[in-house]
Design a protein around this nucleic acid. Structure first.
Lengths: 202, 202, 202, 202
DNA sequence: TATGAATGAGTCTTCATTCAT
DNA sequence: TATGAATGAAGACTCATTCAT
């Protein structure tokens, strides 16, 4: 368990994956991703962690809150992580690379299920909870925005920053459907390919 | 009504949008996109067309078949249309542009709802019907593949063709979530931006 | 077509089996027997005679009336036929044999479907129509009763007539489930076996 | 509660008639008998037991399983009981009497509803479940067969054993429709009448 | 906290019946 | 008479949620 995760758990932002709540969230992420939120029943979730459906409501007020929790954890982690990576990057080019790498790692790493749910089950979340996630999400988008603005100033990119952000985001997110982390192409290579779309290698 | 559409209707590939069946499909596309397949009830659909829920099953065997029909219409039209565009394009560069333009027009034009459903409600379709759509979809992907192979041969692109196809597809598809056709940026401009990701302007 | 049937048709008691109505009744008898009344849809019936479900209601007021018609035809024919047979029989023993033979022939002959429906779909018929059938049925039971009374007077039977009637009727009716007319045992032989239950051969 | 029933409950073969499941089965037997399986709604059943229709599916997977459970209980009990009776009977004549008495008691005793359902709602049961019942039913038929074979060897009966079995079974089963246990004729008397059909009193 | 029986609103689907053409 | 689209009531079944134990 990394030090970042440790801290997030201690702060109550994410659940200990060993706890019943944490195991429930992992199961939820996996099943929501695979079948979609509305085709996943609380019974399905309960079965996976070995409890009965009624017991779920001791951990979450309702099914909606489970979806929210899944999304919330990943939203927080994603932004925290990106901040760390951006600080570590020296050049603006490396910062752009960090944007891409961070997102691809969340999608294809251990948090992949939750990330996919965040992206594809958005509409399933009730309006008020959507707002809460969106609030958190803004900080993340800001990091993208600021970085790409800098890249534009340095003439690294030609496409308008916000448009580019969306295009890259789309290209990255879609990799859920075709990219195989244990296939022939290593993730770093995919990062480079996406980067090459944004920034012309000299 | 265009001549292509006219022909598709006559061939029975798509439904006349004036017929009850056609109006049902339009409503389905709209609602499936907005709320998702499983959160859309047959009552919702019937209400929009002004019939009772039971009457729906006069036109479709079950809810699944409605989803299938929505997807099927757009899959067929999308490929037919792309074929026409590719034939019209002279240079390989123009052909690549046609790939992008065709998809963006389907997403942001009058068939936008059905196209979004095709992309985002895939998992909601039953396995056997998925196969039938996939069969038809292959021809479309082949057109992309062949065109990008040619582009690679002419050194227009640097990223490996199939990888590039997926990246572009993702970037294009994601525009569902942010691009506004009646906003400040015309669609042609968006086409160019995406094209610029793929092909370095000299 | 026999002379009896001819007369019944002319009198409007049964339908001409060539007419749409007659073909509908034959289909109904067959399907009601096979699947039961409530598991047979009017669509099923319409399909078998090659019309659409709506058209059925030009021939019958409702589904109930179809069941009634099936039962009514066979009830009338059964009694008419029995009367003829009883008149032909000379000895009381032959008359008892006629009771048994008549019922077995209706069950295993061309009217088998309708007869089975009469027996096994009784509860499916609405109360008022049940009464109408019962009215007709009484004459038939009377023939059994009178004959068995005579048999008792002649000391041919030992069991109380009405009780015997029910026991024989049950034994005969159940043959629907096991007796094969084209099997090794000819129907006449079955008649004799049943008769031997009722009347001790000296 | 008899010792046999007690054991069947403990073995899980039949449900405790006090339990919700047991009360549901009793209601089902009664209603399936009275109205037939397909004309009985799960709401009807739930209402009789004082729960809501949705709650039924806590106890049974679907409506079919209820019908199966009703039939299964009686099939098991019927065979167990017959075995006990046959063991107790000393002469072959008494064994034949036991066959008849056992069946008549199941039909007109407290298990009458379930027995009637077993006999008259056979077609309503789905094919795979029919097979499961049939499997259990075979042992019961075997007891009849073996006993009647013995009776034939001792020249007690004249009709071929399997044919006689069906004829008697039919006569017995039909008593559902006319015999009144609390009428003038005691059940033992009915048993004797049926026996007299099979075996000539010397 | 966990259980599991019960709830009750809601879902898809069926089907006899109607009726304008 | 036949059609076939539409009706609308009713059916089986699902499932998030509650709550006494």
């Amino acid at each position: 368990m990394g030090v970042l995760l440790r801290r997030l758990i201690d702060e109550g932002c994410v659940s200990d994956p060993e706890s019943p709540k944490g195991r429930l969230l992992a199961a939820a992420a996996r099943q929501f991703r695979q079948k979609g939120f509305s085709r996943t029943t609380v019974r399905d979730l309960a079965a996976e962690v070995g409890i009965l459906s009624g017991s779920i409501f001791h951990h979450f007020k309702n099914k909606d809150e489970i979806l929210f929790a899944v999304m919330n954890e990943v939203v927080i982690a994603m932004e925290e992580r990106l901040q760390v990576r951006l600080s570590a990057a020296t050049s603006t080019r490396d910062k752009v690379r960090a944007l891409i790498e961070n997102e691809l790692q969340f999608i294809h790493g251990p948090t992949g299920d939750a990330t996919a749910v965040l992206i594809y089950e958005w509409r399933a979340l009730s309006e008020p909870l959507q707002q809460k996630i969106l609030e958190r999400r803004r900080a993340y988008f800001k990091l993208w925005h600021d970085t790409l603005i800098k890249a534009e100033e340095e003439a690294l990119i030609t496409v308008e920053p916000d448009c580019l952000r969306q295009l890259l985001h789309g290209a990255i997110v879609w990799s859920i459907h075709w990219y195989q982390p244990q296939g022939p192409m290593p993730l770093e290579s995919l990062v480079d390919q996406v980067l090459s779309l944004a920034i012309k290698s000299e």
